[in-house]
Design a protein around this nucleic acid. Sequence first.
RNA 1: GCCCCUGUAGCUCAGCAGGAUAGAGCAACGCUUUCCUAAAGCGUAGGUCAGGUGUUCGAAUCACCUCAGGGGUACCA
Length: 543
Amino acid sequence: MFDYLEQQLTARLEALGWSSDRLQFSRPKKKENGDWATNVAMTLARDLKRSPIQIAEELMAGWQYDQSIVAKFIIVQPGFINFFQSSDYLLTQLQQVLDIGDDFGKGTTGAGKTAQVEFVSANPTGPLTVGHGRQTVLGDTLSSILTWSGYEVTREYYFNNAGRQMRLLGESLKARYLELKGLKMALPDGGYEGEYLINVARNLLADQPDLDADSDIDLFKSFAEESIFAIIKSSLDRIGVKHDVFYNERSLYETGKIDEVLALLREQGLIYEKDGATWFKTSELGIEQDRVLVKSSGEPTYRLPDIAYHREKIARGFDLVVDIFGADHIDAYPDVLSALKVMDLKTDHIHVVIHQFVTLLRSGEVVKMSTRKANFVTLDELIDEVGADVVRYFYIMRSASSHLNFDLDLAKRQTEENPVFYLQYANARISSIFRRAKERGLDTNIEGADLTLLNEEFTIALINETLTFPEVIDHCLRSLEVHHLPSYLFELATALHKFYTEYKVIDLDQPELSQARLALLEAVQITLRNGLRILGISAPDHM
RNA sequence: GCCCCUGUAGCUCAGCAGGAUAGAGCAACGCUUUCCUAAAGCGUAGGUCAGGUGUUCGAAUCACCUCAGGGGUACCA
């Protein structure tokens, strides 16, 4: 209908010699204002120096519209033109949902295109925390939206298993290991104090009991890395996330990509040495101060491999690249982009989604989180407490740019009034009605149902809500914000519950009407299931 | 100091490609179950959209300023 209106109105504007540049349509909030509206008459009023109402009337005078799409249109103060869809159109759309089924809502925006989503990317120094969890679910859900829109998506995890932090980790494990053998040894300065490392040390002791203070640190380091990666991957698995590529930063050194970047930047005269370190002259690129790329110790800072990695992302030819970062990484992003631009690379297709922090509340107190300190809450613990479905929903129900308050007590206490269960219940309710309908001997085959019987107020509302699904997916895609989807599904569930209380689906005296209503419920269930599938939340048939 | 995010109902937050009377959940109060799952539905109450100025026919939405909270501003990642 949108396409039809746009094409029709554009033609009419042009016929009158008026500009169609500012033609736009919106969905009115109130149903008395129709299904689609345009404000074009008001935006033209200034240029044409006439009243919006007059303009609208002249524009629409004598319009012969397709009655299988548009039922009527009205011109109202202060100058809106409101369009009402025909019931033919509505029911045709509904029939299409039934025909398309599991594919309802899929878009073609990304057809034939590739996308890469980088998320989590936590180094293997500790279990995933509640903070990582947000990024995990955000990235995974966004990936699903992209897949749903036709993209071929690569979910990627970038990690670094070398450098100062990993060395500290190895030393921390060594200290824990020796501690278990009764040898008092202090953790290194700034070392990892978390309990999980004691467990890793226990496993190492069981595996290799003969290590001592003189043993090679690399041994501890690699054992720690393997153990912790196993923990991380198990958390990801529990929450239903699977990465396609684990990209090791080290490979950038081995293939010489790091040196290439340095050479390219040097060619541009943007590299200099000072105090034994190698500096990137970011001050020439509009950034406040210069940055160190290689420390005086010879080790690069994280910026250099980040630049090389993103150069590789571009070289790998993705049509769309999305980085999901926590707010603490916000500073690196402009450096990386400016470096890429200096190297004459196109960066328009690289998008960065920055999510704000998760504040965890327990008993009304803010829980401080730090991987290196002992007191943090892991994603695993969170899943243990509230379950994977609830965790996934809570993480994406808010926009990424909002600070997220995750109240553990509330999440646990409220399990029965949780929005997740509200959605799942809507789905289960439909399944239940179908089961009951069969028991009562109704024909639950919806083929050939007479949809024209669906004409009551809340029925129409439910159909409209169902048909909005593709627009919601599109909105998520354009904004790279996934929280619109859970909001929408919640509204759809509300419309369903409302419908359920108003009308009886199973009515043995009116089998045709029952069949038509079952057909509608089928369409609603298709939509709920498709939506929940994207969110990675289960859709049980019983509650 | 500078950069990013945020400020909307008691609480948690949607809405922010400018549109018509600003929404939801929770909390509060009241109502609905001989009938397809009440994990539901309906109603009442609750707002100077942080404050100010500007742009516009029209601003919660855009611009600028101020205030408040969070994050960053490392030869940590």
